[in-house]
């Protein structure tokens, strides 16, 4: 009685012909999910003159690209993008749709989910296929997408399932899913979509736009020094920056430090920031909530510096220094300089 399973879709976010990293990461995750389900991976690529991006998508495992090209799709805009995607969903009935939890993704995914009456789970940190026993209907549903995310402040991980009809929709932050190796020359299909938009769909007008490459690239960093609320103040946080500079590391922060206004969000590591896997992660004054750990637990080596020996960060640390950060960092710099 198994019904045919729809394909796994990935929304490809692009700007000026450059694909967002998170979309490529999701293609790789999509490939893995599709292999488990025995389905195809298909990409939704919307934009203007973006056909040249298809080979990159194919090389990472996309079987088919739904390509919608139109000048009105050049920049992301919620209404036209939703309309194009909804038409394809109705036509092809995908099983799963993955979106990057970018500013645009967090605008588009809910709009699509609302129109489609589909469930949507934000900021998943893990996705896998399993069966789900629906207590409401008494049915066991095979091959459902387990949407796993830290929930609600504390040390809680929730597994969420969309119990209604497909598609099952999720958003994922940058860096959470790992890239797999591209196979240049891997072949795939391209399905051109006829874009039909009315004037009434294109009401938003972008008057001005400013965008620059991110000044920080934490994802690629080998050594990261990260500061938390335990740094106490903006001045306290400056110690973290100084320390990072001294040992040639990138600066990161926990959400609490970002929320306090000590550093901007591009530096945030964790569930609602970026996920990193450096060679060395030095956590300074970070207690280590489950959300923060979700973004750095896979670092090769972790040093935790915290005056509170009970801080959860120590549970995943390889080296722990129980002490005051402002005392420890200068000693570290001295030892480091003495070494060279």
């Amino acid at each position: 009685m198994s019904k045919k399973i729809g394909n796994v879709w990935v929304f490809i976010e692009q700007d000026g012909g450059k694909i967002a990293d998170v979309s490529l990461e999701l293609v790789c995750k999509g490939r893995e999910l599709a292999d488990t389900l025995g389905t195809k991976v298909e990409a939704l690529l919307l934009g203007h003159n973006v056909k040249g991006l298809c080979p990159t998508l194919h090389s990472l495992g996309v079987d088919n690209v739904f390509l919608a090209e139109d000048p009105r799709l050049n920049q992301y805009s919620p209404i036209p993008y939703t309309k194009v995607i909804i038409e394809q969903i109705k036509k092809h009935k995908p099983n799963i749709i993955l979106f990057g939890a970018t500013v645009a993704g967090r605008s588009l995914a809910p709009r699509v989910a609302s129109k489609q009456l589909a469930g949507l789970t934000a900021d998943c940190t893990e996705l896998r296929i399993d069966s789900f026993e629906d207590k409401a209907s008494g049915q066991t549903l095979p091959n459902k997408l387990m949407q796993i995310r830290p929930a609600f402040g504390g040390n809680i991980i929730a597994t969420i399932v969309n119990s209604w009809d497909d598609p099952q929709m999720v958003t994922v932050r940058e860096g959470v899913m790992k890239m797999s190796e591209a196979k240049p020359g891997r072949k795939g299909d391209v399905t051109a979509i006829k874009v039909e938009l009315d004037e009434a769909d294109c009401l938003l007008q972008i008057i001005e736009r400013f965008k620059e490459e991110k000044s920080v690239n934490l994802k690629g960093a080998q050594i990261i020094v990260s500061g938390g609320y335990g740094m106490g103040s903006k001045d306290g946080f400056a110690l973290v920056k100084k320390f990072a500079e001294a040992i040639g590391a990138q600066v990161a922060a926990s959400r609490a430090a970002v929320d306090a206004g000590w550093i901007d969000h591009d530096h945030q590591v964790g569930q609602t920031g970026v996920t990193v896997r450096p060679r060395l992660y030095i956590a300074c004054g970070i207690s280590g909530s489950v959300q923060h750990r979700a973004g750095m637990a896979e670092s090769a080596k972790i040093i935790a510096i915290n005056h509170d020996p009970a801080a959860p960060i120590f549970s995943i640390a390889h080296y722990g220094i129980v002490g005051r950060v402002e005392d420890v960092l200068p000693k570290f710099v001295k030892a480091y300089k003495g070494h060279g």
Binding site: A136, I157, T159, N162, W164, V290, F314
Partner: peptide, 18 residues
């Protein structure tokens, strides 16, 4: 449509660090 399948409290195994 979204249902919580389960909630897992994260139990931290402490004391393994140097």
């Amino acid at each position: 449509p979204t249902k919580v399948k389960n909630i897992q409290s994260v139990v931290l195994a402490g004391g393994t660090y140097k």
